[in-house]
């Protein structure tokens, strides 16, 4: 194990890690936004947009990110739309992540019992008011575990960004292996980089999940049919 080699090349990995983190952050935020919008559209049952959203979710969940990126980066320029590597990466990640986030928020919404809506209605509240003040806060709390899982998933997905010529961690590792044949060192640093990136996130997510579970939302009343 050539320590000197490792020391020399750490800066490249660090730079790549920052790039990955930055793109992942933007992609995740956009995904959350898209997912939220999709959910609202579905809840409000807006006519045309609802079908478009459904189609989008199916397309995005059933195709790999790599193929989406290739299409964006190599395919679109052929019809005149040229996007930078970074733009492609962010759009691809957001496109993919949006549907996963939409699922997370949907499961959160479905976990709120219908009778909570009825309780709000019986107090004279309007649908909008009920949604924003009663349903949404509860749905967010339930969505947290799936949301966290999605964050980890999306950060892992960024590993394909090298395919669209971005100097991310995988690119750096592959490059080093090709140039110097120091496979072990290059791979070790690659693994270490992802560990450093993802372990804190994973721990943070577990912590958040435990806090939300402790808050223990939910009614304890037993409802008998009548």
């Amino acid at each position: 194990m050539d320590i000197e080699f490792i020391r020399e090349n750490i800066p490249f990995y660090v730079e790549a890690a920052f790039l990955t983190a930055r793109l992942a952050l933007i992609g995740i935020l956009l995904s959350a936004g898209i997912g939220f919008v999709c959910c609202i559209i579905r809840e409000l049952r807006i006519p045309v947009l609802r079908q478009i959203t459904a189609v989008y979710i199916e397309l995005s969940r059933n195709t790999p990110l790599l193929v989406q990126l290739f299409f964006l980066y190599f395919g679109l320029p052929r019809i005149g739309i040229v996007l930078s590597s970074e733009a492609c990466a962010i759009i691809g990640l957001a496109f993919l992540g949006g549907s996963y986030m939409a699922e997370a928020f949907r499961s959160g919404l479905e976990a709120v019992p219908q009778i909570q809506t009825e309780a709000g209605m019986s107090l004279g509240m309007k649908r909008m008011q009920i949604f924003f003040h009663i349903i949404l806060p509860q749905a967010v709390a339930t969505s947290v575990p799936v949301f966290c899982a999605n964050v980890i998933f999306l950060i892992k997905e960024t590993s394909v960004f090298s395919a669209v010529a971005l100097t991310d961690l995988v690119f750096v590792a592959k490059d080093l292996i090709g140039i110097s044949y120091r496979t072990d060192e290059a791979l070790l640093m690659l693994v270490a980089a992802y560990l450093l990136l993802l372990l804190p996130v994973s721990v943070l997510c577990s912590f958040i999940e435990r806090r939300v579970r402790y808050a223990e939302f939910g009614n304890t009343g037993i409802v008998s049919g009548n």
């Binding site: 892992k156 394909v160 592959k174 072990d184 791979l187 693994v191 992802y194 560990l195 993802l198 994973s202």
Partner: peptide, 14 residues
Amino acid sequence: IMPQLVLLFLVYFG
């Protein structure tokens, strides 16, 4: 934690 691509690299190159 590990992205599948990294695992692929580990096995393929390693």
